[in-house]
């Protein structure tokens, strides 16, 4: 099948999936007790049944479920995710304001976990009984079993309080002045701890998988051929073996992308990182339905886009999937 057609089909499926997510989210929120009218009356300091009824009519909450759903989907198609009465702001602008912070955290953690995980996996696969190999096994067990918020708090205590290398919370220091680079450096300093915390779980997974597949690939016939050609050790490992060992790791990374996004909620809360995670946490407590729906929608979008990218990355690595020509 030509690559262009495969791509189109993938994108079509992604859009269909997104629509399904939208319907499901809306239905779930509709089933939950309490609605916007409650939130508004609460913020007014309470209201009687008549006022509540009026609010419901004003916001279309008295309409049948299907009408509300249709209207919601129609609005989303116009990039209108509703209005947050809690934040007094349109949900779209609220989310777009927070999205970059989350994307920065999620993508940098994923990249860190992948790069370090693969490197550790490869190096330890070359000496399966060496010190480093045992260290990777230990790290994997630790990273996978330690709760992410606990890891975060430990890192905070160690590297912000005891040894004050990194800032405790937030994403930017308002006292920082200067040009683009001063701000970039400031954000980077804030990013280090949350990024490491979020990466720790996935680093464990990827390094284990990379080690296992790499060991298998290093014993394969084509690696023996590569050695018989007299290639350097570097070419044998990084050109011939690694390229083959990457596919399973990329597949897992794609599958884990949703877990990374949900992990971000916890990490953002621990580090007061001003992203979608903290927003989600606050809006759930405030029962801010439009905002919650918007965040769910955007999380789904991020995960679906992540999976699409994974698919394309796999096609780049493995020609048998038909990504080239």
């Amino acid at each position: 099948m030509p690559a262009a057609r495969v791509t189109l089909i993938r994108i079509f499926y992604a859009l269909a999936l997104l629509l399904a997510v939208l319907v499901l989210n809306f239905s779930l929120m509709h089933l939950a007790p309490g609605d916007v009218a409650d939130t508004i009356s609460q913020s007014m300091g309470g209201a009687d049944a008549e006022v509540l009824e009026r609010i419901r009519i004003d916001y279309g909450l008295d309409q049948p479920f299907l009408v509300q759903l249709g209207r919601y989907i129609g609005n989303v198609l116009h990039f209108d995710l509703g209005y947050s009465f809690f934040y007094n702001q349109s949900v779209t602008s609220l989310i777009l304001e927070r999205l970059p912070a989350t994307l920065l955290l999620v993508v940098s953690a994923q990249v860190l976990a992948l790069v370090v995980g693969v490197v550790l996996g490869v190096v330890s696969a070359r000496r399966p009984n060496g010190m480093l190999s045992h260290f990777v096994t230990f790290l994997a067990l630790f990273g996978y079993s330690a709760p992410v918020f606990w890891t975060g708090i430990l890192l905070l205590i160690a590297f912000s309080l005891k040894i004050p290398l990194f800032p405790v919370a937030g994403m930017q220091d308002i006292t920082v002045t200067g040009g683009f680079f001063a701000h970039a450096w400031d954000i980077l300093r804030h990013l280090v701890l949350p990024m490491i915390t979020l990466a720790s779980i996935f680093l464990a997974l990827y390094s284990r998988l990379a080690r296992a597949t790499m060991m298998e690939v290093l014993g394969s016939d084509y690696v023996r051929t590569a050695k018989a050609k007299g290639l350097s050790q570097r070419d044998v490992v990084y050109k011939h073996a690694l390229k083959n060992a990457l596919s399973p790791v990329i597949t897992l990374a794609g599958l884990q992308f949703s877990a990374v996004v949900s992990g971000a909620v916890l990490v953002e809360t621990v580090f007061s990182w001003p992203g979608l995670g903290t927003l989600a946490f606050q809006s759930i407590i405030a029962r801010d339905t439009p905002t919650i729906l918007g965040i769910l929608f955007f999380s789904a979008l991020v995960v679906i886009v992540g999976n699409l990218l994974t698919d394309f990355a796999l096609r780049l690595v493995d020609p048998r999937l038909g990504g080239r020509r």
Binding site: S220, Y222, R224, T225, K239, H240, K243, N244, V317, D318
Partner: peptide, 10 residues
Amino acid sequence: EPMTSLNPVI
């Protein structure tokens, strides 16, 4: 084994 002796992704 010619089927497995060549690198599948190169």
